[in-house]
Write a protein that binds this DNA or RNA. Structure first.
Length: 270
DNA sequence: CACGCCTCCTGTGCGC
DNA sequence: TGCGCACAGGAGGCGT
């Protein structure tokens, strides 16, 4: 389940392999997926850089004139993996590059997205179009975060997951940040003070996870097949049957926003 | 508009 | 041993 730290790690790792490379051909498996489209528009264009917004990888594509003509958008979904292994199982898309390498997108579950759009035009990608602030940039203000949470009447965990209050947070880091901030995931009332704590914990945890190249729990791997190293730092996620490191209370499990949620019923308060 | 539920997908792991 | 089924969850879409 690649979230911001995992996608950022993939971005950094792929940069030196794709920057300056032109896409000479694209092919995809014949499965009629609505999440993969317009790939032919990338052929003949050059990848200048790899950007990230939330969980989306954004690759501006430059034409012969030097202008950015298209944008390649990649979302790893749950099981998407980028690499240079054209013969691996579950390859959905292959980009042939002008140095002979083949950038491949593997995705057993087919939840990932790969598409080419007009630069900055995200009408076909609603979540990207309405994406909230980057949590590790100054646009993620405490005040704005507090206001957004006060306007939300959903459980705070649902607000963290919806990508509009803040970008890039998924099930792992939502559970971890709520545990660190001692906030009950089902709470619908988050005051300014607790919003400030949650804001700080999100930044702290995401920063630490980026530094360790993300969390490999199930599907995520880096371009070279390596694992992220943040899994050992997890306190709640995946700890069903375990107990709270702070107070030793057995963790409880619930479903919130259709997601498995682990929390401490004693020290995480409504 | 906001919210919540259903759906898409398939590999994995469990119980019987 | 082998089978069947629940489960994992990011995001799109739709109904209320």
């Amino acid at each position: 389940m690649p979230e911001l730290p995992e996608v950022e790690s993939v971005r950094r790792q792929m940069l030196p392999h794709v920057c300056g490379r032109s896409i000479t051909a694209v092919d995809r498996d014949p499965y009629p997926s609505k999440r993969i489209y317009a790939l032919a528009d990338a052929v003949g264009l050059r990848i200048d850089t790899v950007l990230r917004r939330g969980k989306y990888l954004l690759l501006p594509l430059t034409g012969a004139s030097g202008a950015v003509e298209k944008e390649l958008v990649i979302h790893l979904g749950m099981t998407g993996v980028l690499g240079f292994t054209p013969d691996a199982p579950h390859v959905r898309v292959r980009f042939a590059l002008d140095d002979g390498a083949q950038l491949t997108f593997r995705d057993p579950r087919r939840f990932g997205r790969v598409c080419v759009v007009t630069p900055g035009m995200y009408a076909t990608i609603p979540t990207l179009q309405r994406l909230g602030p980057e949590p590790l940039e100054s646009t993620f203000s405490v005040a704005g975060f507090a206001v957004a949470l006060q306007h939300s009447r959903t459980p705070v965990k649902a607000a963290l997951l919806n990508q509009r209050v803040v970008a890039g947070v998924g099930n792992i880091y939502a559970d971890e940040a709520l545990w660190a901030a001692k906030i009950h995931p089902a709470s619908r009332r988050i005051g300014v003070k607790r919003a400030g704590v949650l804001h700080a914990e999100l930044i702290r945890i995401l920063t630490a996870a980026v530094a360790r190249e993300g969390t490999t729990f199930r599907n995520y791997e880096l371009l070279n097949g390596a694992s992220g190293k943040f899994a050992s730092a997890l306190n709640v996620y995946g700890k069903t049957g375990g107990s709270c490191p702070r107070c030793a209370t057995p963790f409880r499990r619930a479903v919130i926003a259709q997601r498995g949620t682990t929390y401490c019923p004693k020290c995480q308060r409504h």
